[in-house]
Amino acid sequence: MSFQACLDTIQKKTGKTPSDFKALAEQKGFTQNGKIKDGVKATQITDWLKQEFDLGHGHAMAIYALLKGKKPD
């Protein structure tokens, strides 16, 4: 599955776009100015995504990669 297909699946499941997840991560205090804050661990973000959006580990890691800037949105 391509990264874009993964994001499409997440959007279909949650109703949230990649931009929505970026804004929510900022509101939660995980990111600042579009970058993950120092000291914030991947597990904190993936646990939040799993709990709040019922994402599986792979999809949560895809959003983490998006927030980290490893993949374009």
Rank of each mutant, 00 (worst) to 15 (best):
G58Y: 10
L24K: 13
D8E: 08
F21M: 12
G69W: 10
P18F: 10
G69C: 06
T46P: 03
K28L: 04
E52M: 00
P18S: 11
A25C: 08
L49E: 04
P72N: 10
T43Q: 07
I45K: 11
A42C: 08
S2V: 03
Y64Q: 10
F21A: 10
Q11K: 10
H57W: 06
A25K: 12
K12S: 06
K50Q: 13
L7S: 02
K70M: 07
S19A: 12
K37N: 05
L7M: 15
I10R: 05
A42I: 00
I45R: 12
H57F: 07
F53C: 05
K35H: 13
K13I: 08
G56P: 00
K16C: 10
I36T: 03
G56Q: 07
D73R: 13
Q11W: 09
I45L: 09
Y64N: 08
L66V: 07
W48A: 00
F53Q: 08
I63F: 13
K70S: 10
A23T: 14
A23M: 11
V40L: 04
P72H: 09
I36W: 11
T31I: 06
K71E: 07
Q51K: 15
K68D: 00
G58I: 01
S19R: 11
W48G: 01
V40P: 00
L49N: 02
Q51A: 14
D38S: 14
L67T: 08
I63V: 15
D54H: 14
D8H: 06
G34I: 05
T9Y: 14
P72F: 08
D47L: 13
T17W: 04
D8K: 07
G34C: 04
G69M: 07
I10K: 05
K68Y: 05
H57G: 02
K71L: 05
A5S: 13
G29F: 15
G58L: 12
H57M: 04
G34Q: 05
M1T: 12
P18W: 12
K22V: 00
Q27V: 09
Q11M: 10
G69L: 08
G39P: 03
F3C: 00
E52D: 03
D20K: 02
Q4W: 08
E52L: 01
K50A: 12
F30H: 08
G34F: 12
W48H: 02
Q51H: 11
K68R: 15
F3H: 01
L55P: 01
E26D: 15
N33S: 09
A5E: 14
D47V: 13
T43C: 03
G34H: 07
D47K: 15
M61G: 01
T31D: 07
C6D: 02
H57A: 07
K35I: 01
F3E: 01
